[in-house]
Amino acid sequence: MPSATQHASHCPRQKQDYKLEALDGELLLYHVGETRIMHFNPTAALVWQLCQGDRTVEGIARLLADAFPESRESVHEDVTAMLHRFEEAGCIEWI
């Protein structure tokens, strides 16, 4: 299975039945049938929303860099780290 750092040409996609919801100001990603719960900051939530299987890591990073030009230099590294975290949690797949 390729990873964010190994295969930049692959596209991350959310696995089925994971939900991102807000509760009292916190963003949480969870699967109702599993016990693990991830806490997201707004940027991580944005990256998660972009994991639709139609953008590469580079594509996601470029989109965020355009949206947040002041953070352009660190965006790629941040996106890679977040995708790595998603992958470790088992909530995305690479296509």
């Binding site: 939900k19 919801e21 509760l23 009292d24 916190e26 949480l28 969870y30 109702v32 719960i37 806490h39």
Partner: peptide
């Protein structure tokens, strides 16, 4: 909070 949210869902 995460547990509460998951049970609610």
């Amino acid at each position: 909070k995460g547990l509460a949210l998951r049970h609610r869902s």
